[in-house]
Computed example of a mutant assay.
Amino acid sequence: MANISSVSTSCETYQLLRRGEVLARCAFSNSTLHRLIKSGDFPPPIQLGSRAVAWIESEINSWIEQRIENARCSESDALV
């Protein structure tokens, strides 16, 4: 079962993903997640409480889409 929550602000509704869902979607380890956040190469989490964080689903989806686009561009460049 996914750990997804909804948060509404002004005119938008955001879906929030907990760490396990982010790790599953991105297919990497917790240490890789921390390294990418620290280097600024991954969207930072939103603090929900003293020990709880979540990520905005649309930001994670955009990050994944960008990786796919970069991979596809690299593949087409290699074929030329």
Results as ranks from 00 to 15, higher is better:
residue 65 E to S: 09
residue 29 S to L: 07
residue 51 R to K: 09
residue 26 C to F: 04
residue 24 A to T: 06
residue 56 I to H: 00
residue 47 Q to R: 14
residue 61 N to K: 15
residue 1 M to L: 05
residue 34 H to R: 15
residue 25 R to F: 11
residue 29 S to C: 01
residue 36 L to M: 05
residue 80 V to D: 14
residue 10 S to W: 14
residue 19 R to D: 04
residue 62 S to E: 14
residue 76 S to I: 12
residue 59 E to T: 04
residue 15 Q to P: 06
residue 28 F to I: 10
residue 58 S to T: 10
residue 31 S to E: 12
residue 52 A to E: 14
residue 46 I to T: 07
residue 71 A to Q: 13
residue 65 E to Q: 10
residue 15 Q to Y: 08
residue 25 R to I: 10
residue 65 E to R: 04
residue 36 L to F: 08
residue 79 L to C: 11
residue 56 I to V: 09
residue 38 K to Y: 11
residue 45 P to W: 01
residue 13 T to I: 14
residue 49 G to C: 03
residue 37 I to K: 03
residue 59 E to Y: 10
residue 1 M to R: 13
residue 28 F to R: 06
residue 70 N to P: 02
residue 11 C to R: 11
residue 21 E to W: 03
residue 56 I to P: 00
residue 32 T to K: 08
residue 20 G to P: 02
residue 27 A to Y: 11
residue 36 L to C: 04
residue 31 S to I: 09
residue 78 A to Q: 09
residue 62 S to L: 06
residue 64 I to N: 14
residue 16 L to C: 05
residue 51 R to N: 07
residue 78 A to T: 11
residue 67 R to S: 10
residue 79 L to V: 12
residue 67 R to D: 01
residue 71 A to H: 03
residue 46 I to Y: 10
residue 19 R to L: 04
residue 74 S to G: 10
residue 49 G to Q: 02
residue 41 D to W: 00
residue 37 I to S: 05
residue 60 I to G: 03
residue 43 P to Y: 05
residue 79 L to R: 09
residue 63 W to K: 06
residue 16 L to Q: 00
residue 55 W to D: 01
residue 68 I to N: 09
residue 67 R to C: 11
residue 39 S to F: 08
residue 76 S to V: 13
residue 66 Q to S: 13
residue 60 I to P: 02
residue 34 H to W: 05
residue 42 F to N: 03
residue 16 L to N: 00
residue 36 L to H: 02
residue 57 E to R: 07
residue 80 V to N: 15
residue 12 E to M: 13
residue 73 C to E: 12
residue 22 V to I: 07
residue 60 I to C: 07
residue 34 H to G: 11
residue 38 K to C: 08
residue 25 R to P: 05
residue 43 P to M: 10
residue 62 S to Q: 14
residue 41 D to V: 02
residue 37 I to C: 09
residue 53 V to C: 05
residue 56 I to Q: 00
residue 2 A to Q: 13
residue 44 P to S: 01
residue 39 S to H: 06
residue 60 I to D: 05
residue 40 G to V: 06
residue 64 I to V: 11
residue 33 L to A: 07
residue 74 S to Q: 12
residue 76 S to G: 07
residue 72 R to K: 12
residue 23 L to N: 03
residue 41 D to Q: 12
residue 33 L to Q: 04
